Amino acid sequence: MTAPTRLTPGDTAPDFTLSTDSGDPLSLKDLRGRKVVLYAYPAAMTPGCTKQACDFRDSLASLQAAGYEVVGISPDTPAKLAKFREHDAITFPLVSDTDKAVLTAYGAYGEKQLYGKTVTGVIRSTFVIDADGKIEKAMYNVKATGHVAKLRRDLGLD
């Protein structure tokens, strides 16, 4: 597998319809007219992914006040996402991309370095999508800890 194709500002965000943690479908096109923060994470209920989800949860009110919707995406099943939501009181939608097609379309699945080894997996990434469905920011290989604070600064919210 080669390095994934990365999105850049101005690209059209790949549309998707995926199952949420509640089993309901969520489509990116249904969020048109609103700004969206879509963040890709490797696995629910792991330390880094939990920290990142809780940071988004704790910043959700101010992000929504600034017009942003937050959606988390991972290859976890809807059932595992439901447990994650319940266990950590996640208050935004989590979508399941078990076949990794959407993660791949966003350049958030492919080869990455993990503890000095090249592995294939989810590349922790965040995408800011404008109200017209265009990529405003595409951030790859972000850190689980401190990323939401950096994103808030980048968006002019702090």
Results as ranks from 00 to 15, higher is better:
T2D: 15
T5N: 15
T5W: 06
R6Y: 09
L7Q: 04
L7N: 15
L7M: 12
T8Q: 15
P9Q: 13
P9N: 14
G10C: 06
D11Q: 13
T12A: 15
D15M: 14
L18S: 11
S19Q: 15
S19W: 02
T20M: 09
G23C: 05
G23V: 14
G23I: 08
G23H: 12
P25S: 13
S27C: 14
S27K: 14
K29L: 02
G33V: 11
R34Y: 07
V36H: 00
L38P: 00
A40E: 03
P42T: 09
P42M: 14
P42W: 13
P42S: 07
A43T: 10
M45Y: 02
T46L: 05
T46W: 03
C49F: 01
C49M: 12
C49E: 01
T50H: 07
T50R: 03
C54D: 10
C54N: 01
D55I: 08
D55G: 10
S59Q: 12
A61I: 07
A61N: 09
L63S: 04
Q64R: 12
Q64H: 10
Q64Y: 01
A65F: 04
G67H: 11
G67E: 04
G67I: 05
V71Y: 05
G72K: 06
D76M: 05
T77M: 10
P78F: 02
P78L: 11
A82S: 13
A82F: 00
K83S: 14
K83Q: 06
H87W: 03
H87V: 01
H87T: 11
D88C: 06
T91R: 13
P93E: 06
V95S: 08
V95C: 14
S96H: 11
D97L: 11
D97S: 14
D99N: 15
L103E: 12
T104F: 00
A105V: 04
A105F: 11
A105E: 15
Y106P: 02
G107L: 06
G107C: 13
G110H: 10
K112A: 08
Q113C: 10
L114A: 07
L114C: 13
L114W: 12
L114K: 02
L114V: 12
Y115W: 08
T118G: 08
V119G: 09
T120M: 10
G121V: 03
V122G: 08
V122C: 12
R124D: 03
R124Y: 01
S125Q: 06
V128G: 04
I129L: 00
I129V: 08
I129K: 00
A131V: 09
A131S: 09
A131L: 04
G133R: 10
E136M: 01
A138Q: 09
A138I: 04
N141S: 15
N141V: 06
V142N: 00
K143T: 13
H147L: 03
A149W: 01
R152T: 01
R152C: 02
L155K: 07
L155D: 13
G156K: 01
G156E: 08
L157S: 04
L157R: 13
L157I: 13
D158M: 03
